[in-house]
Computed example of a mutant assay.
Amino acid sequence: MKYKVVALKLLRAISLICIVIIFAMPFVWMMSTSLKSLGETIIFPPKWIPADFHWSNFEKAWNSGPFLRFFVNSILVSVGILILQFCTIIPAAYAFARYRFKGDTFFFGLTMITLMIPAQLIFLPVYLQMSAWGLLDTLWALILPFASSAFGIFLLRQSFKQVPEELIEAARLDEASEWKIIIKIMVPMAKPVLITFGLFSFITHWNDYFWPLVMTTSDASRTLPIGVTKLLQVEGGVAWHILMAGNMILVLPILIVFFFAQRQIIRAFVYTGVK
C-alpha cells in the first residue's frame, strides 16, 4: 500500500512537470529567440541558448515604429475598458444577486446568452454604430463596445450571493443606502473575484488583435498587437528575432500584472470553491 501511494505521488509529480513544460516551452522559446541573431533563428537543429545575447533586438523592435504610441494606446484601452466594466457589472451583479423582480431570471438568462455570441458575429452592427457616432479610428471605438461584461456579471453575482443576508440587513437597519452597502460591504468582500476578473479582462483586451484591426486605420489609434505585426518586415524579410523581441514587449506588462495579482486569484478560487 505504501509503495502504491509513493507511485501515485511520483506519477502526479511527473504529470505536473510535463504540463508545466508543455505550457512554458513556447514562452521560453520566444524569450530565447528574442535574444538571438537572425542567423541563429533559422539554423537546424535549433539552439535553445544563443551564443551571444543580442539585447539590441529590443531596441530595434521598439524603434521600428511608434511603439510608444501603441503601448500608451493599449494601456488606455485596457484600463478604460476595465473602469467602465467595473462601473456596470458591480451594480448589475448586485441587482441580480440581491433583488427579486419580475423577469429577473429572463434578463439574467438574456445576459448569459451574450457569452455565446462571438465578436466576429456582431462586429458589423457595432462598426456601423461607431461610424454613425463618428468614433471610428478613435480609442472610444475600442473601449465603448466592451463597457460591460456578461462573464463579469455572472462571476460577481455568484460572489455577492455568498455574502450573508444578515450582514446586509444589519447595514440597512443602520440606514445605509444601497450604494453604501455595495461600496462598503459587497465590493471589499468580493475583492479577490474583482481582481481575478480584472486580470482576465486586462489580458483579453491587451492581447486583442481583431477589434483594433477593424476599428482603426491609423497608427495614432492602434494598439500594441497591431504594432507587433509590423515587425514582420523590419529587415526586408521575416526577422524572427525582432518579432519575438516585440512579442516579449507585448507580454511583459501581463506578466507584471499577473505577478502582483496571483495571490488574489488563488484566494478567489479558494473562496468560491469552499463555499
Rank of each mutant, 00 (worst) to 15 (best):
Q162T: 14
S177E: 06
Q162G: 11
K191V: 05
D174P: 11
F160T: 06
F154Q: 07
R172W: 08
E169L: 15
K180E: 10
L167M: 15
E175S: 15
V187I: 14
V163T: 07
S177Y: 08
I183A: 12
I182R: 03
E169F: 11
P188L: 03
V187R: 02
Q158M: 09
I181Q: 00
I182S: 03
R157A: 05
L155S: 05
L173Y: 13
P192S: 06
V187S: 00
K191S: 09
I168D: 01
E165I: 12
P192N: 04
K161A: 15
E166C: 13
W179L: 00
L167D: 06
L155A: 08
I183D: 08
K184M: 14
I195E: 00
I182H: 03
E169M: 13
E178H: 08
F160H: 02
V163H: 02
V187F: 02
V193A: 12
V163R: 00
E175P: 12
I183L: 13
Q158T: 09
L167P: 05
E166I: 14
V163I: 15
V193Q: 11
L167C: 11
A190F: 01
R157D: 02
I182F: 05
L156A: 06
K180T: 09
I195T: 07
D174C: 13
E165Y: 11
Q158E: 10
A170D: 12
V193S: 10
A190L: 05
I185Q: 04
E175F: 15
Q162D: 13
I168M: 07
I182W: 02
V193H: 07
R172P: 02
K180P: 03
A176G: 10
L194T: 07
Q162Y: 09
L156I: 08
L167R: 10
A176F: 06
L194G: 06
D174W: 11
S177F: 04
K180A: 11
A170C: 13
P192V: 00
I182M: 11
R157W: 01
Q158L: 07
I168R: 02
E178A: 07
F154W: 11
A190T: 00
E175M: 15
V163A: 05
D174T: 13
E175V: 15
M186I: 01
I183C: 12
M186R: 01
L155D: 04
L156Q: 03
R172S: 10
P188A: 08
R172V: 10
F160A: 00
E165T: 13
S177I: 05
F154T: 07
A190V: 01
R157N: 09
